[in-house]
């Protein structure tokens, strides 16, 4: 066991325990760690944006290569920032309109293709009881139909229609159960990451054997 002499590792350990101390109860160490995280993230982001976006993508092309067309998006960007000046905040709406319009125009047709049409295509399957794949396909087909019917609210969920909707609830519950199980796994993984950091990087314990 070799305890680290790297001050950054010590700082990491301090903030790790500060955050975990919230599990006992809210306290000033947790608050400090929370605020430092927000501050560092924003500061880091600003520096990277300055060096990787503003200088090479705006300043150099405009002032060294004479690409004046870039001044138009720069003005739109400044208009967006004007949201913080109440007198001129209305100008930000033009920049937002441009951003939303462009974004929606790009995303909507492709989302339709990737998340709706391709998914519909994936429900058109070879159904059958003779093979495992055929039975799986029946489960997928019935599941999609039952869940869609559950979300159809223009007809009262009674009789056969209500029965299929209830089956849809069962499929949804299985889905939620799987998601919950995965969520538990995810949260534990984050803790494992911190345990590994404390044991290996801080205490210098060789866990690999």
């Amino acid at each position: 066991m070799h305890i680290s002499i790297n001050p950054w590792v010590w700082l990491g350990v301090f903030f790790t325990f500060s955050v975990l101390s919230f599990l006992y109860k809210d306290n000033p160490f947790y608050k400090l760690a929370e605020h430092v995280t927000v501050g560092v993230s924003i500061g880091y982001g600003m520096v990277i944006i300055w060096h990787n976006a503003l200088i090479p993508r705006f300043y150099m092309p405009v002032f060294q290569e004479g690409k004046l067309i870039l001044i138009i998006p720069a003005i739109l960007g400044l208009m967006m920032i004007l949201r913080i000046v109440p007198k001129y905040s209305w100008l930000s709406r033009y920049a937002i309109c441009f951003s939303v319009g462009g974004g929606a125009g790009l995303a909507i047709p492709r989302s339709m293709q990737a998340s709706v049409l391709r998914q519909l295509e994936a429900t058109m399957l070879d159904l059958g009881f003779t093979t495992t794949q055929g039975i799986n396909n029946i489960v997928i087909f019935v599941g999609v139909l039952a869940v869609l019917i559950y979300f159809f609210f223009s007809k009262e969920h009674k009789g056969v229609f209500g029965g299929i909707a209830k089956l849809g609830i069962w499929f949804l519950m299985v889905g939620f159960g799987a998601t919950f199980g995965y969520t538990v796994m995810a949260r534990l993984s984050l803790f494992i990451g911190r345990v590994l950091f404390v044991l290996q990087d801080f205490l210098g314990i060789n866990l690999a054997g």
Binding site: G175, T179, Y182, T183, A186, S189
Partner: peptide
């Protein structure tokens, strides 16, 4: 490669 939360 996704976090377990997104896997489903």
């Amino acid at each position: 490669g996704v976090t377990a939360v997104s896997a489903a």
